[in-house]
Computed example of a mutant assay.
Amino acid sequence: MTGLAWITFGLALALAVVRIPAALRRENRLMLWLFALVAMAVLLSIEGPYLAIDAALGGINLANLILRFLLYGICLLMAVRISRAFNALGAQRILLGPWGLAALAAAGVGTVVSFLLLGRLPSTVGLAAGDNREWFDLYAGLGRIYPSFTGLVLVPSLVRHARSSGRAVLRCSAGLLAAGYLLLASTNTFVLMPASWVAVMQTMNYSAVLLLLAGLAIIWIAGVAARRRTLAKGLPRNKSTEVKN
C-alpha cells in the first residue's frame, strides 16, 4: 500500500502548494495549514520517512505520538472548515462546544497515558503491540474514535446537501465527504479484523483520506470558479456570490 500512501501524500502536498498564493494574500490560511498537516501526517505513516524521523527523535516511537496529535488537529480543523462551508452551525457548535472539546481533551490525555504505559517498543511504523496489548488497543482505538466523532457529527448535514437540489459541484463535494467520513468511522472495526488484514486496513485508511481531500478540493475549486465568474461580470465580491472557501 506504499504507492497509495505516496499518492495521498502527493495530493495533500500539491493542494497545500496551490494554496500558498491565497495565503500570502491573507485569504483563508486555514486551508493551507490543513493540507500541509495532512501531508505531514501521511508522510509519518510511510515506513521510510517514519523510521528516519523517529530515529532523530530518539527511536522510541515519539513520531507515532506526534502523528496521533496531528490527526486530532487535522480532524478538528477539517470538520470546522466543512461545517462552515455547508452552513452546518449545529455541528460546529458541537465540535467547538463543551462536549466536543471534552472529547478532544479525553482523547489527548488517554493517548499520552496509554503511550507511556506501553513502555519502550521498537521503532516501527504503525507501532507494534508488544506485551501490553490492552494499552495498545486503547492507544490505537483513541486514534480512530475521536476522528470518527468529528466526522459523524457532520454526516447528517452532508447527506442532506448531497441529496438536495443545489449546485451539482457542492452536492458532489458533500457526497465525497460523507463517504469519506463513513469509511473513516468504519475503521473502528479494525479490532475485529485479524492481524493479517493489514493491507485491508491500510486501504481503508488511505481511501478515507483521499475521499476527504477530494471533497475539500472540490469546495476550493468551486470557490475559485465563483470568484472568477463574479470578477468577469464586474460585480463586487461578496459572500452571496461565492462558495465559502
Rank of each mutant, 00 (worst) to 15 (best):
M1Y: 04
L4F: 03
A5S: 15
I7N: 01
F9S: 08
F9Y: 13
F9W: 14
A12E: 02
L13Q: 06
A16H: 03
V18Q: 10
I20L: 11
I20G: 01
L24C: 07
L24P: 02
E27F: 08
L30S: 04
F35C: 04
A36N: 03
L37G: 10
A39D: 11
A41E: 06
A41D: 05
L43Y: 02
I53Q: 00
L57M: 01
G58E: 01
G58H: 03
L62W: 01
A63R: 00
N64G: 01
N64E: 01
L65N: 06
L65Y: 07
F69C: 12
L70S: 03
L71V: 15
C75R: 05
C75D: 09
C75F: 15
L76N: 09
R81V: 02
A85W: 04
A85I: 09
F86N: 14
F86E: 13
N87P: 05
A88N: 10
I94M: 13
L96A: 12
P98Y: 07
L101R: 15
L101P: 12
A103K: 09
A105V: 15
A105L: 15
A107I: 10
G108E: 08
G108V: 05
V109F: 09
V109P: 01
G110K: 05
V112R: 03
S114A: 13
L118H: 00
R120P: 04
L121A: 01
V125Y: 00
V125R: 05
L127F: 00
A128D: 00
D131F: 00
N132D: 12
R133V: 09
R133L: 05
E134F: 07
E134M: 05
W135V: 08
F136E: 01
F136P: 02
Y139A: 04
A140G: 03
A140C: 00
L142K: 10
G143K: 08
R144D: 08
Y146E: 10
F149R: 09
T150Y: 11
G151S: 06
G151L: 06
L152T: 08
L152R: 08
V153P: 14
L154N: 12
L154W: 12
P156Q: 10
P156L: 12
P156Y: 13
S157D: 15
R160H: 14
R160N: 14
R163L: 15
S165A: 15
A168H: 10
A168L: 14
A174P: 15
A174F: 15
L177A: 11
A178H: 13
A179W: 13
A179P: 15
Y181G: 11
L182G: 12
L182N: 11
L183Y: 05
L184V: 09
A185P: 11
T187C: 13
N188H: 02
N188I: 09
V191D: 02
L192I: 10
A195F: 00
W197E: 03
A199H: 04
V200Q: 05
L211R: 10
A214T: 11
A214G: 13
G215E: 04
I218A: 12
I219K: 13
I219G: 13
W220Y: 12
A222K: 08
G223H: 07
G223T: 06
G223I: 06
L235H: 02
L235S: 03
P236H: 09
P236D: 12
K239I: 15
K239F: 15
S240Q: 14
E242T: 10
V243K: 13
N245F: 07
